[in-house]
Design a protein around this nucleic acid. Structure first.
Ligand SMILES: [Zn+2]
Ligand SMILES: [Zn+2]
Ligand SMILES: [Zn+2]
Ligand SMILES: [Zn+2]
Lengths: 158, 158
DNA sequence: AGTGTTATGTTATACTATAACAATTTCGTC
DNA sequence: GACGAAATTGTTATAGTATAACATAACACT
């Protein structure tokens, strides 16, 4: 994965929105201008963003929407797997692999705030097996790891 | 692990409080009556309990404390590793292995609300290795699994 | 155009958590 | 036992997160 600090993030946003449009058309659901704007704002950085921060950013346009407006858009995006909610931060972040909805695993940097979505090989399966051993049937998993990212560690291999 | 539905939960609570007292004495920190009461209330079931629910239960005694009172007690208990916070529920639950503070892995039943603390073998290590591969230094992990527990599945092996 | 459905606007409120400062209790020291 | 420092608890106010309930508007389909 490329360093988060030196990629073309405008392209990053455009790609995410393009993918979202394609996905929504394919599913017959509507990525309305409002939902699209919220998605863009969530993607405005790789750091998870709070619902009220999104509100603030929308207020820049003059007319500040009320909380339910942004929460409904976020609910839609989350249901379609276009964003994930970071439970430990009460915040939202764009999904890096939105083609198929999935549980995400996140590395969250406490220094720069960025969150990187992981696919730890076999981890979901392993959790499922351990749960099954307890007679537990798994619905969804939340895996969030806090720490410091490579950029913030100065690119040193710790 | 025994079925959660047919153990002597009064003993369960007493054991947890006894262990907490022992641990706090050993560390030279004070399990005050207030903190002890909050710990008992958190242990009043195996389902995570919200801070304001704890408040309600304390109000039964006549004098209802204000939110900071219970939040401070919960902070103490969490710092000492006597309770864990369940991020996906904004709620707290007693720690099953409080001797040494640790990150917990939880199975949370969406039917009965109970949460069981797991120690999935090697999972922490595996997450740490995957993170290291990304140049990420791990501080803490949150692993919360939602689904249905054995009891609620009718003791069938799904 | 008419109609049911989906999406958005609006107001109010619920739920979760902390800031800031005052009063009290605890504990070691004199 | 009196004193002072430190820790704990009380109190008031407020910040931050999220949803209920109902009104209006846009869309899709005939
Ligand atoms: Zn980017
Ligand atoms: Zn960082
Ligand atoms: Zn029990
Ligand atoms: Zn259950």
């Amino acid at each position: 994965m490329p360093s988060r600090s030196r990629h073309n993030h405008q392209k990053c946003i455009r790609d995410a929105v393009s993918a979202a449009e394609r996905i929504c058309v394919g599913r017959g659901v509507r990525l309305t201008p409002l939902r699209r704007q919220v998605l863009e704002l969530v993607w405005s950085s790789h750091a998870p963003i709070g619902a009220y921060e999104v509100l603030e950013l929308m207020a820049g346009d003059g007319a500040r929407p009320a909380p339910p407006t942004v929460y409904r858009a976020l609910d839609f995006l989350k249901t379609e797997g276009l964003v994930h909610r970071i439970e430990t931060l009460n915040a939202f972040v764009g999904c890096a692999h939105p083609e198929a909805p999935h549980d995400a695993q996140y590395l969250i940097c406490e220094a720069c705030g960025n969150a990187v979505e992981l696919e730890i090989d076999g981890l979901s399966r392993q959790i499922q097996k351990a749960a099954a051993r307890e007679g537990f049937s798994v619905g969804g998993q939340t895996v969030e790891v806090k720490g410091k990212c490579g950029d913030c560690l100065g690119s040193r291999v710790s």
